[in-house]
Computed example of a mutant assay.
Amino acid sequence: MAESTPSVTPRVFEHTSRKDWGRSVLVLEIPDKRTFLFEDGAERSFRPDYWHKMEIIEVQANEAVRIDRIARRNQAPAPGSTRKSKAPPKKPDITFGQQVAYFMTLYPVGFEDESYIKSERGVAGAKGREKLKDAAIERAEDLLSQKNLDELTGNRSYEEIHQMIYEFLTSTKSTTQKAEATRFKNLPEDSRETVALALRELLYGERTYPIRFDSFVAALDVEDGATWPLTTLLSALVYPADHLFVKPTFLKKQALILDIDPKYDTTPNSTTYMQFLEAAKKTMELLQEAGQRPRDLWDVHVFICKTLSPKAIKEATGVA
């Protein structure tokens, strides 16, 4: 029999030797076959002699429901079903070449442009630099280092970690909104240890990054739920060349321009994040091929945001 819908907390499974597939839910069980939907979007079936490879794992109830919902959303309608497949999202009316051309009207020297560095990265000694990207990355290298987090968690200094995260949320320009930071500040006290340990695992754990990301999201017991900026800022500051700060409105557009369907969900999740990351890394490659020199994924983030606002698309394409 198939796993029930999330009126009851779903069981969550993981393949013992293919952690890269992510977690899964059981959607079909018959005498000679079990079929699972995985977080990577794939449906996989196993014969009885492989059933032992699929182990039940413990996750928080809200995370189990999220995994079930994401998996079933990606499931194709059954034969004869009246449910229609969701129409693919519309690609923005701008090409990548037009994005680059528009960016160059803003910053004629590209990412090395003096005005770009002054407004986005920060100039040493300049007023306001402490709010910009390079200063935030420098603080993260120190405060969010494995050594510092291990020391703080070892001393059970969970309140200090909570305050440190809050300061990152409020001190980096053009990232998280004040309301997001306030909701995090008001995180229930009995959740702060869980968040601190989940952050340490997110940044330095040994499990695959998608699993660590989803665990961090599940730990954030904030009012109205965690947001994409809240869940992606810290990794992007610690690993600016490898991880991405997500403002989903813009990243959805960029992914579609590059023919990547991000399977978007308003709730942060690893499936969508990894596709956003794929889009950002592809954007970096295309920028380099176009003669640009982005330093890291923060430069890619700024490029995407500067060129994909409604005003930018209108000005870049001349289409009202």
Rank of each mutant, 00 (worst) to 15 (best):
F168N: 01
E58R: 10
Q98H: 07
S174R: 11
A64K: 09
H52Q: 08
D142P: 01
Q98I: 02
S171P: 02
K282A: 00
F38I: 08
A126F: 01
L258G: 13
F245G: 06
E159N: 13
F216M: 09
G22S: 05
A280E: 03
E43P: 10
R295N: 06
K147D: 07
G128E: 07
K314T: 14
E193G: 12
E39F: 09
P89M: 07
T16D: 13
I117T: 09
D40S: 09
K173S: 14
E43R: 15
F276K: 00
P88M: 08
W298Y: 09
R72H: 07
T266E: 15
L144K: 05
Q177D: 15
I313P: 01
T272C: 13
A126T: 03
D20L: 11
R23F: 04
D32Q: 06
A279V: 02
L230R: 03
Y50T: 08
M104W: 10
R192D: 04
L187R: 08
S45G: 12
Q254P: 00
V12A: 02
E120D: 04
D68Y: 12
P294M: 03
R212K: 13
S157Q: 14
S4Y: 07
K247A: 14
S145G: 14
E114C: 03
G205I: 02
S145H: 12
Y158P: 00
A140W: 02
A179T: 12
E151P: 03
Q98D: 12
L132D: 10
E193M: 05
S174C: 06
Y209D: 09
R11S: 15
S119I: 10
A279G: 07
W51M: 07
P92Q: 03
E63L: 14
A198L: 06
D296T: 00
K311C: 01
R83G: 12
I94W: 01
L233Q: 06
D32K: 00
F36M: 08
F168C: 00
T194W: 03
N155E: 15
D40V: 07
W51Y: 06
G291I: 02
K314C: 12
A280S: 12
T232D: 10
V319S: 14
A87S: 11
G205H: 02
Y273C: 02
V123G: 00
K306F: 02
S81L: 04
A61H: 12
S45Y: 10
R200E: 04
L37I: 13
K314A: 13
V27S: 03
D259W: 05
V300T: 09
Y273D: 08
A140H: 00
I313Q: 03
I313R: 00
D32R: 04
R73F: 08
G205P: 04
H301A: 04
A312E: 00
I67T: 04
V65P: 05
D265H: 08
P48M: 04
L237Y: 03
D134Y: 11
F276A: 04
L132F: 01
S174G: 05
W21I: 11
Y102C: 09
S17Y: 14
E112W: 02
L199A: 08
A290K: 13
T272Y: 06
R34E: 07
F213G: 07
D150S: 11
L258H: 11
L234I: 11
G318Q: 13
N269L: 06
L187C: 09
R69K: 13
L277Y: 06
L277S: 06
E63G: 06
K84Y: 10
R66G: 04
L233G: 12
I257D: 01
Q75H: 11
A218V: 09
A126P: 01
V65N: 07
P210Q: 11
K84E: 15
